[in-house]
Simulated assay, not measured.
Amino acid sequence: MGALPGVPEQPERWSGTLTSGQVLLVGTDGFGDPLGDGDVRVGALFAEHLAEPPSPLRLAHLPGFSGEAFDGDRTPLAPWPRDAAR
Results as ranks from 00 to 15, higher is better:
1 M>C: 08
2 G>Y: 04
4 L>D: 02
6 G>V: 01
6 G>H: 07
9 E>G: 06
12 E>I: 14
15 S>C: 03
16 G>L: 00
18 L>I: 03
18 L>Q: 03
19 T>G: 05
19 T>F: 01
20 S>K: 12
20 S>C: 04
21 G>F: 07
22 Q>N: 10
23 V>I: 08
23 V>H: 08
24 L>Y: 07
25 L>D: 12
26 V>G: 13
27 G>W: 14
27 G>C: 13
27 G>T: 14
28 T>R: 04
28 T>N: 11
29 D>Q: 13
29 D>T: 11
30 G>E: 11
31 F>E: 09
31 F>T: 06
32 G>N: 12
33 D>E: 13
34 P>E: 05
34 P>Q: 05
34 P>G: 05
34 P>W: 04
35 L>S: 04
35 L>Y: 07
36 G>H: 02
36 G>W: 00
37 D>E: 04
38 G>L: 02
40 V>M: 07
41 R>F: 10
41 R>I: 07
41 R>C: 04
43 G>V: 05
44 A>T: 06
45 L>T: 05
45 L>M: 10
46 F>Q: 06
47 A>N: 12
47 A>D: 12
48 E>G: 11
49 H>D: 09
49 H>N: 15
49 H>R: 15
51 A>P: 01
53 P>K: 09
54 P>A: 07
55 S>I: 02
57 L>N: 06
60 A>H: 04
61 H>Q: 09
62 L>Q: 06
64 G>V: 03
64 G>W: 03
66 S>R: 11
66 S>L: 10
67 G>Y: 10
69 A>K: 10
70 F>L: 05
70 F>M: 03
72 G>E: 09
73 D>T: 13
74 R>H: 14
76 P>H: 12
76 P>T: 13
76 P>L: 15
79 P>V: 03
80 W>N: 03
80 W>I: 03
81 P>I: 10
81 P>Y: 08
82 R>T: 09
84 A>K: 01
84 A>W: 02
85 A>D: 03
86 R>K: 05
